[in-house]
Amino acid sequence: MKRNVILALLAIVVLGVAVFTSRQPGEALHEVTIYTSVDQVYSEPVLRAFEAETGIRVNALYDAEAAKTVGLVNRLIAEKSAPLADVFWNGEFSQTLVLKEEGVLAAYASPAAEGLPALFRDPEGFWTAFGGRARVLFVNTAMLPKADWPRSIFDLPPRAGEIALANPLFGSTGTHAAALAAALGPQAALDVFEALKSGGVRVVDGNAVVRDMVAAGRVPMGLTDTDDACVSIEKGAPVAVVFLDQQADGLGTLVVPNTVALIAGGPHPDLGRMLADYLLSTETEAAMIESGWVQIPSRPSPVEGPCFGRLDVRAMQVSMAEIRAAGGEIDAAIRRMFQD
């Protein structure tokens, strides 16, 4: 009996190893490796579709370190001398710019980038951006009538006590602060955050927490991203989003696009280029709009997203490089303001 159990266990392990090492019938031996910070639930279907279309196996490493961490970027920098990855697909842009500065990326002008706005292409070709999410004010409609909704970032400081905000040291709130610094100047941006802080803004642990607090009615409004807001909207919570500063001469709303880049010295450069082209194609962008990852298309698109339909948003007119540079200027002050 005992021997049978041991044999059964061995059989399970052997079966596991067999499945572990198996490939699909007809699957090509070509493979390409991608590191992506785009959530697995959104990025995996796209990569599977690429596999199905091309027969090229995609080894993906997803950034699974919860919020606000940049584990994949660290890994790419650490592996710079002997990279495993061919492509980096980032859900935002600032860390891609860090990789460019660190010399991790290779220049590549993808033909699929045709039609993208000039701000979405690195002048030196080290990265290309496409479709993104927007930074929005998320309001609880049961607590706040439409007439009371703020319309500009400058309307927020006097009402700081009613607002929740993710920690500006990390993630898209940090990028938002940097974008404001690029658009308004470092001191004006710092003044906004200083006024929010001294006015009693609730600093919480992430955009998802802001979303949940607003949806649950624990705070009337908060700053978050459209993909987070979409989760509550789909659940039927009494919430709405406000795209700030949309008037004709307004500042515009921060749009955080995806970025795609090739890794210098990656083991499969040709296949990496093929995958980058696929990710930057209009078809992939349409798929990402339909899945709910992208809310703001970077090119005219016939498809509509599940939460906001077809959006026409006035975006902030600052380049990603300017945002990155401005972020460096205010980083220490923001750190002092919110860390110590």
């Binding site: 490796t33 959530d39 080894n59 490493l61 699974a64 370190e65 584990g71 495993l84």
Partner: peptide, 23 residues
Amino acid sequence: TMMTAAPGQGVLSMRVFNYLHYG
């Protein structure tokens, strides 16, 4: 696991955790 998994070598716990972030 999150810090050591190699590309294309994900395991079930990572998948569950990633999906859980969306509720």
